[in-house]
Design a protein around this nucleic acid. Structure first.
Lengths: 145, 145
DNA sequence: TATTGTTATACTCTATAACTATA
DNA sequence: TATAGTTATAGAGTATAACAATA
């Protein structure tokens, strides 16, 4: 049935453009913390999953290991994460959120999302409900193989 | 009512992370054309709106004018757009899609969206319906003041 | 030998500031 | 003077390739 495929392609195109434009917009709002999005996402991952190795973080955030090395270096410089040697494998490193990082993350969350939630005011309750239901779907797409 | 605000903030946080992760994922798929996302969005805008000035394109794509200058230069180098002097205002320039650009855009659309629509296979019809309804909302957010 | 992480290097995208040409 | 566009320059983020340390 070619109709379904064509509809999918049209939806893909529309969704893709919207997501990219919104992402670019959101990227512009990061000035409040002066941390990049991968930095913040990395902190969030550490908050959720506890300590992780650089390799795990790289896989989780979908960046290459050298990129994660740099992200971690920046976070460590600012005292937001702590690096510890792995107890049994000398090659590996364990990264975890510092108390400073945890507080910063918590205190900053409201600010980080201020722009977006502020613009929720323009949306109807139905639209908000829709966003609430669709967010996990976008996350699934982002994490798909 | 603090509940609504807290719920909005939580939704904002969730949506923000999902959108950014999906955007990063989509960015990685651009290899097929080796053109950046702003380049492709610019071509799309020209396809939809016809000829536009660099300033209009910059405003539409939410980038600064010098960035759009470079985007246009790349597109012109590849013969995808044509620059013409403005008929009445010597300061302005009109940019429009070339035939090559139009064909490239058309022929490339399927490939560009292949990754995304391919992953629609993992979603239920209900999820797809949700995505269909949410795309314009994301676009509205992206274009909000 | 294979794996984990890092360093060295380069590329892409975007921004701000300064400049040119025209209105 | 003000506006449209461009050029010059810099910064952030990411990638690949080469390297070091450990398993």
């Amino acid at each position: 049935m070619p109709t379904a495929t064509a509809a999918d392609a049209a939806l893909a195109s529309e969704l893709r453009l919207s997501v990219m434009r919104l992402a670019r917009r959101l990227r512009g709002q990061r000035a409040a913390t002066d941390l990049g999005l991968t930095h913040l996402a990395t902190l969030s991952s550490l908050e959720i999953h506890g300590q992780m190795t650089p390799g795990e973080l790289a896989a989780h955030e979908r960046v290459q290991p050298p990129s994660m090395t740099r992200v971690i270096a920046t976070l460590e410089e600012r005292g937001l994460v702590v690096r510890e040697p792995h107890p049994t494998d000398g090659r590996q490193v364990l990264v975890q959120l510092s108390d400073t990082g945890r507080e910063m993350l918590k205190g900053d969350r409201r600010r980080r999302d201020a722009w977006l939630s502020q613009h929720f005011a323009d949306l109807s309750p139905d639209d908000l409900e829709l966003l609430h239901r669709v967010a996990p779907i976008l996350e699934r797409l982002a994490r798909a193989e």
